[in-house]
């Protein structure tokens, strides 16, 4: 008996009128994967660094995220504490073991910090982004030992720290950086592109924030 796999491949080849062994076809596929050509990249994000960050903020705000900038990483804890106070939220915060977050002076605030993945009972979470994409105000977060994916979805209020130097123009630049970090053809287990807080328009097409993921998304851009 032929396996489902072999029969499906055989059917595709019969329909396309090919054998699967044609050298030019194989070369075309190898070449495309190897070279990964960029297609049409919008001019919108092709800006000098400072204007890129400005566009990133504007686009993120258009997607109902809130954005603030702080001069240095050392200023993040105070900014986060102030944000939570402003919104009348409890002074609790969960974060991953990320070294950049761990190095911040959380002890200088009154925040009660816990570390590790969320079990669904955390109101507030903070993550560090891998990058920000200016063309659409999109955050890019990658999973690893120090960055739990659950923190991106379970807490009601998600705060994301991103370095200004990691705010790039387009998605294509994200993949260059991922390949540089992971190697060609390799990906982190999860890459989350996040553009604004969770929402749904499923009831009478009325757009409402906070469907299953975070109700609020606050971005802290570190300028240094």
């Amino acid at each position: 008996m032929t396996s489902a796999r072999d029969e499906i491949l055989a059917n595709i080849r019969r329909s396309l009128g090919v054998t699967g062994r044609e050298a030019p076809r194989i070369a075309a596929v190898d070449e495309r994967i190897e070279r990964a050509p960029r297609g049409v990249v919008p001019k919108r994000g092709q800006l000098p660094p400072e204007e890129r960050v400005t566009l990133f903020k504007a686009m993120a705000e258009a997607a109902q995220a809130t954005v603030e900038a702080v001069p240095s990483a050392a200023d993040v804890p105070a900014a986060v504490a102030a944000y939570l106070r402003r919104h009348n939220l409890p002074a609790t915060l969960r974060r991953g073991a990320d070294a950049r977050l761990a190095a911040m002076p959380w002890g200088e605030t009154a925040l009660e910090i816990s570390v590790g993945p969320s079990d669904g009972h955390d109101l507030n979470g903070v993550s560090h982004a891998f990058a920000g994409v200016a063309e659409s105000g999109t955050l890019v977060l990658v999973s690893c030992e120090d960055n739990p994916t659950t923190l991106n979805f379970l807490p009601d209020n998600h705060i994301v720290v991103v370095s200004a130097k990691d705010v790039i123009g387009d998605y294509e630049e994200v993949w260059s950086r991922v390949r540089f970090k992971e190697g060609k053809g390799l990906m982190p287990r999860t890459v989350n592109m996040i553009t604004g807080p969770s929402r749904s328009g499923d009831i009478e097409q009325v757009l409402l924030l906070g469907a299953h993921g975070p109700r609020r998304l606050h971005i802290v851009v570190v300028d240094e």
Binding site: M59, A63, T138, R189, N192, M193, I194, T195, R199, G213
Partner: peptide
Amino acid sequence: QDMSVYTTFSTGP
């Protein structure tokens, strides 16, 4: 929308 809110890339367990 310019982008949907969550675009998630999953690779393996």
